Computed example of a mutant assay.
Amino acid sequence: MTNKKNIVCVSNTTWEGFYTKSTVQLVSLLAKSNQLLFVEYPFTIKDLIFTLMGKGRAPVKRMLGIKSRLVKKQSTFDTEVNHLVLPPLLPFAFFKNERLYNFFLNVNTFFYARSIKRAIKKLNMTDPIALNAYNAIYGNTLLGKLKESLSVYYCYDGPDERRYGKRAQVADHSYAEKVDGVITTSDFLADSMKHLNDKMKVVKNGVDFNVFNKSAKTNINTSNKKKVGYIGSLDHRFDIETVEYTVQQLSDYEFEIVGDLMNPKIHDALAKYPNVTFLPPVKPHEVPDLLKKCDVGLIPYLCTEYTKNIYPLKINEYLSVGVPVVLTSFANLPEFDGVANFTKNKEDFCEAIRKEIEQDNVEKILSRIEYAKATSWESRAKDFEKVLDDYLAQS
């Protein structure tokens, strides 16, 4: 590690939540030798109202300033991160008129920048590194406003046009061109963006190995009851057709689906089958014990322009507890060839599950665990900081 740096992470995710987040993991570990300011997801007035109605999870009291907007958070890695919540911003993404859209974007940016600058001043942070985590729309308008010594775009997914519209891609590409460097989580994503910025680096997702490995399998399940598990977000990426076909064909297997149901069509299609159980999302520290009970873990994503950029966090989590992994071929992840089972269609997907369960053994369990050990977040954080140091040396 090098000299202590001041890092301001402008995030597009929340600090807390149901699932492990790469930004939070990396920032937590970077805080071991640097001063970190994590700027929470930019909640809007709509989020505030929905939370007051009991339909959201926004930090209302901190947003309104009833409680301090700037606090210190203890991470799972025993580090301390400064955590900033913004005042409620104005919803504006729905505007089709570009003038209105840009007007409200700029209004929000004024309050966004003002809040961050106040926190920077209070923390005596000078010449900060501005690390933008998948928040390109605001990245463009905030660029240069924090008096940053370095601007870095941490792009862990491709632009999600389905969620954010065409403007997401425009902002993503525009911002990538302007920053001092871009860090992606997959080789495919880096290759697709290399024409935008010649300072392109890859730091892949990791796993909290020590936590997950405490729940590692020590033997195969010899009972007749076999459990197929999925833990993660239940959203538009989920391949309903493939999973429904598999559930029908493997009626003697139990399917346990755990996660935040963002796409009700998933529940509508699968809940009618007696061998399918839906469970609500759990906290990250509860995930390992759930995985240990599975005989195989699924990552059934649709193959789209968006998902081909993804390096899924859960693949290393499954492997850390020794669980075999069956995936659709949504992304090119050659580093997992021979460790996980990639399938081309619903028939292959179904057969791969049966094969992985029937042919599993202790040797394979240990091999998966050993592979995952090399992908710890500690290792990834060292790689990430090395990239930041290289960018600083070149600036």
Score class of each variant (00 low, 15 high):
312 P>Y: 10
350 C>N: 08
393 A>E: 14
286 E>L: 13
91 P>E: 02
325 V>C: 08
395 S>P: 07
345 N>Q: 02
335 E>N: 07
205 N>M: 09
99 R>P: 00
282 V>Y: 06
366 L>P: 14
178 K>F: 01
215 S>T: 07
108 N>S: 10
95 F>I: 08
34 N>T: 00
179 V>P: 10
390 D>S: 15
28 S>R: 00
281 P>K: 01
178 K>C: 05
97 N>S: 12
314 K>E: 05
91 P>C: 00
94 F>E: 11
10 V>R: 01
153 Y>A: 07
134 Y>P: 12
212 F>N: 05
126 T>P: 04
66 I>F: 09
197 N>S: 12
68 S>K: 14
28 S>D: 01
331 A>I: 12
357 I>V: 15
202 V>N: 03
177 E>C: 13
134 Y>M: 12
255 F>L: 08
129 I>E: 00
202 V>G: 13
2 T>E: 11
190 A>L: 00
265 K>V: 04
8 V>E: 03
334 P>G: 06
167 R>C: 09
384 F>P: 03
219 N>Y: 04
193 M>S: 11
195 H>S: 15
207 V>K: 02
180 D>W: 05
313 L>N: 14
114 R>W: 12
386 K>C: 09
10 V>I: 14
91 P>L: 04
273 Y>I: 14
117 K>Y: 02
23 T>K: 00
50 F>T: 15
380 R>C: 12
267 H>N: 10
344 K>W: 05
379 S>A: 13
56 G>T: 04
367 S>C: 04
113 A>V: 12
19 Y>F: 11
148 E>D: 09
168 A>L: 08
274 P>A: 03
203 V>C: 04
1 M>Q: 06
42 P>I: 02
93 A>R: 05
161 E>R: 15
18 F>M: 04
121 K>H: 07
387 V>E: 13
211 V>F: 03
281 P>C: 09
147 K>Y: 06
342 F>L: 10
143 L>S: 14
44 T>R: 07
105 L>G: 08
301 Y>A: 13
84 L>Y: 00
66 I>A: 09
315 I>W: 01
169 Q>V: 10
16 E>P: 00
266 I>R: 07
146 L>E: 05
221 N>Y: 01
145 K>E: 12
170 V>I: 15
266 I>H: 08
224 N>V: 12
128 P>V: 09
